[in-house]
Amino acid sequence: MNTRITTAVTMGLREFRRTPALIGLLIALPLYFIGGFMYIVPEATLTIPISGESVTVTLSEFVAALVTPVTAGLLSGIVGLFLMQSSKAADDRLRLAGYRSRDLVVSRVSLLAAGGLIVSAVSLAIVLVGFSPVSIPAFVAATVLTALIYGVLGVIIGVSLSRLAGVYVMLFFPYVDMLLFQNPMATDSTAWTKALPGYFTTKATMDAAFTQGLDLWNFIGAVGYFTVVLIVGVVVFHRVTAIE
């Protein structure tokens, strides 16, 4: 990593450290969303189909496993949405001053990854207090991948749509994707829902939460999905920060 990238990442992290309201929200909102859901569902059990087997779990465990990646996706998506919008003008100037697009892309992706890791870490810390997934490392990996995929999607949406439409889409999209389309109870899902960003990560999360076996293909699919959206994101980023 060259000094330009390390300088830009360091400065980005300093800016983040100086936004106490944002840091507070990134802690409080997962607590409200994940902790809230685990608390408000009644004491009951349900049987869900996961990887071809029927697993009986409590409702609280089920929602904990389902809403953790949703939280990570929602929050990192919104952070990604504003990461570009808020720094676009200054980034233009930095490009003109000599930063290559590649340096700026790497530094912004690093910042996005840092944001995704923070959001994931907070979400996981909250959920793990009240719920023990069968495989904690796989559960952590699936949550982080969700945050990364939606973080980059947030960037793409942020530069492609207006602020109003962007926030609405990020409010709507992770919710319907992971809570509805990828919900293990949605057994009549059609083939095209496999193309949605939450397909591999939700399956990986549910596997890690409730089954012994680890299906590596879910992770390979999620990493592949992340790579594709990252390439699209880099192209979009390069286009919007292009100078002569």
Binding site: A21, L22, L25, L29, G36, F37, L74, L75, S86, V167
Partner: peptide, 21 residues
């Protein structure tokens, strides 16, 4: 929360939680 980022984060979580309920 007068900044768009913080305001959007809070509104998104509040609205999604409310709608799921």
């Amino acid at each position: 929360l007068p900044r768009a980022l913080e305001g959007s984060l809070a509104l998104v979580i509040l609205a999604d939680m409310d709608n799921v309920i």
